[in-house]
């Protein structure tokens, strides 16, 4: 139960800060998502993201910055194992589930539904 509360607080905060970004700049949600993913990568590089995940679970696992985390995580894992070639092999290693699910569900929903209002 505590973790759910922490996920609410931390995840909500990330989203609310994103809202501040949208309301005070001319940028679009697409810019915001890209910024968050890049920040996720950088936080992972310094080990901060692992700590945040331990602390708040889905609070940082559900926001899109988590893509940055899993992409970087894969690169670092493979780089340690295979060196230079691992940099390429690792990018989609951990992120595979999320990206595949997005593309596959995205396509399937498009097959069955039409945009309405």
């Amino acid at each position: 139960m505590l973790m759910i509360l922490k996920a609410f607080l931390v995840g909500g905060l990330i989203c609310a800060l994103g809202q501040v970004f949208l309301d005070n700049t001319k940028y679009t949600p697409a810019h915001l998502l890209v910024t968050l993913v890049v920040l996720g990568c950088i936080f992972t590089a310094f080990g901060v993201y692992d700590w945040l995940l331990d602390f708040s679970g889905a609070g940082v696992g559900v926001p899109v910055s988590n893509f940055g985390y899993i992409l970087t995580k894969g690169v670092l894992l493979e780089a340690k194992r295979d060196g230079l070639i691992g940099l390429f092999k690792g990018v989609l290693e951990v992120a595979s589930a999320g990206i595949s699910a997005s593309v596959i569900f995205g396509f399937l929903v498009a097959v069955f539904f039409k945009p309405r209002k």
Partner: peptide, 17 residues
């Protein structure tokens, strides 16, 4: 509405505020 929206802005079902 829908033809203009998709030409000038984002897809109709995209959740932008």
């Amino acid at each position: 509405y829908q033809t203009a929206e998709r030409q000038y802005r984002m897809p109709i079902e995209y959740g932008s505020q």
